[in-house]
Simulated assay, not measured.
Amino acid sequence: MKSILKLKTMDDIEKELSIILSCEKKQKSDITLSQIFDFLAESIELSIQGIGSTSKRSTINKLLGKYKFAKLISSGHYTKTNQIPGFPPRDLGDPESAQLRLKTSLTAFRLHSGPFADHPVFGDLDKKQWEKIHGILASFLFGYIQLFGDEKLRFAKDRESKKDRNLSDKKQNHHHQKKKEDRGDSKPSGHNSRKWKNKKKSSYKGNKNQGGGQK
């Protein structure tokens, strides 16, 4: 199953999660919300808590892991559940707890600076690489959820996000302009024209003194 979602960061996952929780929804298959949220949360938790839990990998496995990672990043999505070890997990039947667990894990990942655990397939990954993996996994898992009314909500959230970005850009530009003025980089109007006139005047005097006219 190829998802149309393209989640690349933890912020993307959180925004999509908020849309899922705000919309009416139903399952597209026998995979439940509890399974989806729990599995994604567990993946995030293991990336920051599973340090040293994986066995040593041979050189061949390391190279194979890097190849598989590059291939997944290049394609940008999972296509089959058998590409994801351990999925689907056992259904614990508590979507509210799974939802809270996922939110907590997202916050924990954002605050965690390292070290990070090895991926069971891809091997050694840093924070940015793990974030890409979580984004691709979330895109795939959230594809199991059918939403109603999400287009309208997405439009509203995108519009709100654009307004925030524009406001931030304006504040930043104003701040840079003020810093220039404080340093004296900004010249008062008319400064350059006066300087040009002075140059012209001095040049004229020089020509007059050196001229051969009557004295």
Results as ranks from 00 to 15, higher is better:
residue 41 A to Y: 01
residue 41 A to G: 07
residue 42 E to Y: 12
residue 45 E to C: 13
residue 45 E to N: 15
residue 46 L to D: 15
residue 47 S to R: 13
residue 47 S to W: 08
residue 48 I to L: 12
residue 49 Q to V: 10
residue 51 I to L: 07
residue 54 T to G: 07
residue 55 S to R: 14
residue 55 S to P: 12
residue 56 K to W: 11
residue 56 K to L: 14
residue 57 R to V: 10
residue 60 I to L: 09
residue 61 N to A: 14
residue 62 K to L: 04
residue 63 L to K: 12
residue 64 L to D: 15
residue 65 G to S: 02
residue 66 K to L: 12
residue 66 K to M: 07
residue 67 Y to R: 10
residue 67 Y to I: 09
residue 68 K to V: 05
residue 70 A to W: 08
residue 70 A to G: 12
residue 70 A to N: 14
residue 70 A to C: 07
residue 72 L to N: 10
residue 73 I to P: 01
residue 73 I to L: 06
residue 74 S to V: 02
residue 74 S to G: 04
residue 74 S to P: 02
residue 75 S to E: 12
residue 75 S to V: 06
residue 76 G to R: 03
residue 76 G to M: 10
residue 76 G to S: 09
residue 79 T to L: 11
residue 79 T to F: 05
residue 80 K to P: 05
residue 81 T to Q: 03
residue 81 T to W: 00
residue 82 N to H: 04
residue 85 P to T: 06
residue 86 G to F: 00
residue 88 P to K: 01
residue 90 R to T: 02
residue 90 R to P: 04
residue 91 D to N: 03
residue 91 D to L: 00
residue 92 L to H: 07
residue 93 G to H: 00
residue 94 D to I: 05
residue 96 E to V: 13
residue 97 S to H: 02
residue 99 Q to F: 01
residue 99 Q to S: 11
residue 99 Q to L: 02
residue 100 L to H: 01
residue 102 L to E: 01
residue 102 L to H: 08
residue 102 L to Y: 00
residue 103 K to Q: 07
residue 103 K to S: 05
residue 104 T to I: 10
residue 104 T to E: 15
residue 106 L to E: 03
residue 106 L to C: 10
residue 106 L to Q: 05
residue 108 A to W: 06
residue 109 F to S: 13
residue 109 F to Q: 12
residue 110 R to Q: 15
residue 111 L to T: 15
residue 112 H to N: 15
residue 112 H to P: 13
